[in-house]
Amino acid sequence: MARRKFSAPGDEIETRHPVIVNRYRGFTRVNHWITAACMIVLLLSGFSLFHPDLFFLTKLFGGGQNTRWLHPIVGVVLFFSFVGLFVQMWRLNLPRKEDVEWTANLPELVLKGDESKMPELGKYNAGQKVVFWGMSVMIVVLIVSGVMIWEQFFPKLVPIPVRRIAVAVHAFAAFAVILIFIMHVYAAFWARGTISAMTRGTVTGGWAFKHHRKWLRELAGRSDGGSAK
């Protein structure tokens, strides 16, 4: 079997008439939704401590003490869950030369919805790659700075001056993650037909053709590409 260049194990053409393509297998989807759930809990609990006007959000978790306790623990779960995603996705998120062209034509896509000038792409476009790497870096920054300010279990891990840096870095990284998160959710919604990739695991042929044609070509050319059905 030919080596995959633009697709991940498990990606395959599920049915050829009509074309339905498997984009994420069950394991990856569960992994993704655990990460997403953690992220939302972290956003809400983190926000509640971020600004006094948002302190009321601690009520969602049964008060300030619970929020303080829960946030870092969910943070650790998120970290390991994200490591799972990272291992599965990093290779196809490495930058490629078509990313430059894609980025150059991005304004037209965003302002006019015109995708005609875009190059053919593998499984991910440059925007998705920015989300992936941005999340990867920021989650590492968050776990490292988060552990440094974790009073309950690591009160003496770093001296207080370092702790001051860590808490400021943590707040800033959280800010960055939230912006990336908004971008990520929005993009999934804006490019119609994307969300099913993470719910049912599949996308339509047209979606794959429009946004990730090289990925579709590779799958179509593989003998495990679903010809049996």
């Binding site: 074309v19 804006w190 490019a191 119609r192 339509t204 047209g206 979606w207 429009k210 579709l216 179509a220």
Partner: peptide, 17 residues
């Protein structure tokens, strides 16, 4: 404008496959 996948693109995908 949302990025809608058109009927035409579905057909092209079919052809490609």
């Amino acid at each position: 404008r949302a990025l809608e996948v058109t009927e035409h693109e579905e057909e092209e995908a079919q052809e490609l496959v």
